[in-house]
């Protein structure tokens, strides 16, 4: 481990840098398709970060659900909307937004420094460390056991809520036959 110890660390910083860069591009790009694609890249690298934490299940689900399904629908909608080509080039930037960015960054630094005082010792593996998860039967097993025992009710209620949303969408999108005929 000693010889190549720097590889995981370098990967972490590379992935984090790419996440920051693509996150900025999501809000900065003028073209909504560019924004959407950077969102995909962003979500993909967040999944890579999960994978580096040995949370393979979460990483796979992250890519499957967010990058592979939800943003596809964004891209779909954006493509069907007919966008004017002139307003779509370059990067969006204005003074007001830069000010907001500055205040956000200041807040981020304050919160970060506060957290740094009170944060638990990150060098010690806790009960969610990769070794502990491996002992408990692996990622998928642990997630499934928590979800279907301790958090069964919230899980079921959330799924009913999503089902309701789907039914509502279909009802709204459905053509009213009486109106179209007359």
């Amino acid at each position: 481990m000693e010889a190549f110890y720097f590889v995981p660390e370098m990967l972490f910083y590379a992935i984090s840098g790419l996440i920051l860069l693509s996150s900025i591009m999501v809000v900065a790009a003028r073209n909504p398709v560019t924004s959407a694609i950077f969102l995909v890249v962003d979500l993909f690298f967040v999944a890579a970060l999960y994978a580096q934490l040995d949370a393979h299940f979460t990483a796979a689900i992250q890519v499957l659900v967010y990058a592979g399904a939800i943003v596809v629908l964004f891209v779909f909608v954006i493509m069907i909307l007919n966008l004017k080509p002139d307003a779509l080039r370059g990067i969006r930037f204005s003074l007001g937004e830069a000010l907001v960015l500055l205040i956000t960054l200041a807040g981020f630094v304050i919160v970060g420094s506060e957290l740094a005082h009170t944060a638990p010792d990150l060098t010690m593996p806790g009960n969610l460390g990769s070794a502990a998860i491996e002992m408990a039967g692996g990622n998928t097993y642990v997630v499934a056991m928590r979800m279907f025992t301790a958090f069964l009710w919230p899980f079921e209620i959330a799924s009913v809520l999503i089902l309701l949303a789907i039914v509502a969408c279909v009802m709204i999108a459905k053509k009213d036959k009486r109106v179209t005929k007359s």
């Binding site: 393979h56 890519v63 990058a67 592979g68 399904a69 891209v75 990622n139 998928t140």
Partner: peptide, 24 residues
């Protein structure tokens, strides 16, 4: 990987972007 199955579905779901971007 212990989640090889999910990995295959996750990554292959990204192939949609190639097709949709090419057309657009």
């Amino acid at each position: 990987m212990d989640v090889g199955f999910l990995f295959i579905f996750a990554i292959s779901s990204l192939a949609v972007y190639g097709v949709s971007l090419a057309g657009w």
